[in-house]
């Protein structure tokens, strides 16, 4: 099932609009691990995260026609779809964000994190670079991107005015960009 072709984003989108399965295999291979982690960060449960990932990809396949490339990149669309699905799922289950994580799940997560991380590029090298990100910058990015907090929630959680969230987010991502360029 591994798809060895490489597509440009444009080709990929076109193929997926035509329900091309090899392109979908490629999409899965390239984006499922990143989305899996984002779901996991929100639900903090490995098997639940994988169930949601499964739903998300079926939805991506079935609703691909609704992707509009003028509104942003493919991954952003997939991420928003996945995040919304995760939030709905958590609501329906009465999930709370600060749910407990069992020791087992942490160890499973860490195990997978290190042993079968994606080989597309040197994620370890990038992570090393990203370790230099200031904690307050990392927190604001992670809260929004990995944990699905709204800006109101971020403002409350960190204790900063709502208007400051935007500017701080921008500074943090500019810093992030600098670090990504070094890898």
């Amino acid at each position: 099932m591994q798809n060895l072709n490489k597509y440009s984003e444009e080709e990929l989108v076109q193929l997926l609009q035509n329900k091309d399965k090899p392109a979908f295999v490629y999409l899965y291979d390239n984006y499922a691990p990143a989305l899996n982690n984002i779901i996991y960060r929100m639900v903090e449960d490995v098997s639940l995260a994988e169930d949601i990932l499964q739903e998300a990809f079926v939805k991506i396949w079935n609703n691909f026609a609704s992707y509009d490339k003028s509104k942003g990149r493919l991954f952003t669309w997939m991420l928003n779809l996945t995040r919304n699905l995760t939030i709905d799922m958590m609501r329906s289950k009465g999930y709370k964000k600060q749910s407990k994580i069992s020791g087992d799940e942490i160890s499973v997560h860490n195990l997978q994190d290190h042993s079968i991380s994606i080989t597309k590029f040197d994620s370890l090298g990038i992570r090393k670079q990203l370790a230099h990100l200031k904690p307050d910058q990392r927190i604001i990015i992670d809260m929004a991107y990995f944990n699905g907090y709204t800006q109101d929630e971020i403002a409350k959680e960190i204790g900063i005015p709502l208007g400051t969230v935007k500017t701080r987010m921008r500074t943090a991502i500019l810093e992030l960009r600098k670090m990504l360029q070094h890898t």
Binding site: N37, Y40, E50, R73, S123, I126
Partner: peptide, 27 residues
């Protein structure tokens, strides 16, 4: 968006192989 994609990829976690099997069985 590309910055964030790279950020997301840096922390990517491979899901269990069964997820892919199930998705393709369904589609």
């Amino acid at each position: 968006e590309i910055d964030m994609e790279r950020y997301a990829n840096a922390y990517a976690v491979q899901p269990d192989a069964s997820v892919k099997v199930k998705i393709f069985a369904r589609i």
